[in-house]
Design a protein around this nucleic acid. Sequence first.
DNA 1: CTAGGAACTCACGTCGCGTGAGGTGCAAGC
DNA 2: GCTTGCACCTCACGCGACGTGAGTTCCTAG
Lengths: 247, 247
Amino acid sequence: MEQTAWKVGELARRTGLTVRTLHHWEERGLIVPSRRTAAGHRLYDDRDVRRVYEVVALRELGLSLEAIAEVLAPDRDRLEGILSAHLTQVEARLVALRDLRTTLAALVAGLRNSTTPGPSDLMGLIDEVSKMTETFNNYFTDEQLAALEARRQELGEDTIRAAEREWPELIAAVQAEIDAGTDPSSPRARALAARWGELLESFHGGDPGLREGLYRMRDENADEVLSRGGPTDEQIDYVRRAGVTGV
Amino acid sequence: MEQTAWKVGELARRTGLTVRTLHHWEERGLIVPSRRTAAGHRLYDDRDVRRVYEVVALRELGLSLEAIAEVLAPDRDRLEGILSAHLTQVEARLVALRDLRTTLAALVAGLRNSTTPGPSDLMGLIDEVSKMTETFNNYFTDEQLAALEARRQELGEDTIRAAEREWPELIAAVQAEIDAGTDPSSPRARALAARWGELLESFHGGDPGLREGLYRMRDENADEVLSRGGPTDEQIDYVRRAGVTGV
DNA sequence: CTAGGAACTCACGTCGCGTGAGGTGCAAGC
DNA sequence: GCTTGCACCTCACGCGACGTGAGTTCCTAG
């Protein structure tokens, strides 16, 4: 009449855990089997099994074993407090990780198509990129950054990288027309200006706030932008005269 | 003529690290001071100091000491590879953490204004919430979820929580009017419908995609929604007849 | 010559287990 | 009864990046 007793191996298989994990949880006082055989083999009854599943669920929420022990203690009222404390901590980590991702992505991109050949002074590069992303963040609200995030996800990494690779070419082409004295209203100049506008559009997606922030950033950090291979005032002016829409 | 030699304590103060950390980095082969005094005290010269700053910078990127050692090795070409590998890993963690945050937030919200009084079966609650957020994710594209994210950040947590608390009241009020036989075109009914529309609007922000996804989700999971305190078909119909804009 | 601050070298603790090592329990086949 | 083989048992070390003593020696100022 009682099938309700499992040994560790069975329990481990049924729960997808390892025997060692169950031992460890017992050491920490989380799951202590209610009985043992004469030989000392652990016997788990169905209450124990339920508890195991609870621990699994809580562990998937990222709680520490200590916190889980606290939650599973007889006074379950602590659940909400612990969870919301954990949530705040997770959110902090999330923010930090997001910033880190941005910095790393900029660094990798900077290394990949770096104008400077070899980063012999890697500290300088890192500093530079960090400062740049910091500056960048200053020109957009959190909301706009989230929108940018969404756009990036939508476009896909490859598209973005392709655009980043295209900019230097486009800038060089514009400079070539300037040097050649081509009239800004010529078809060639207009084509370049059109492409220029498209690339910008692929960044801000038509959002006026983003577009304006981008312009402000360029205007107020012209030197920085220039040293990173950005366009000169002359180039921008040329494109503006060649283009139709505001650039 | 040479001030260019620091002992650990000085270096630690100047870099904001601890002495123990510098010792540890030495054990791992990262920063081995180029000289020692006769008594065995470490002496760091300026090349060592530069290296320390490099390690600091790389550590801030979240690299392991092992990876840093690899990056700092004579062949610096590995930098890009290591960083981009790290980036992929960071991105994976970011995705996981985002999901976790969503689940946790839903759980905490569910506990805070839970219709069910005490979660005696916390596993059931967790399962339920996990399943719900999973379902939720099925009705929106990644892009839409990012947009939702942006909106939430914009509104602020308090506003959202207030809205969540308001829904049950509003639904109850609507039901009261139905029970009382109030005409849907009456001012009272219209006022409720207007508020209803506002709360919905605060969710989807006017985005047609979000609005449509929300409706689809409700239609296809009516039972689920109902059991979580959502509105009945009758209530929705009443509000639709009372309101002017599509609800 | 002494005080005390700074330096030194072990070495254990953290967190959640993985991974042996070395020994016992138990059912089946000989 | 004896072996085989598997499941179980209890230590105990290892990971990563240090924190935190503990016990000892060096150095400088009074």
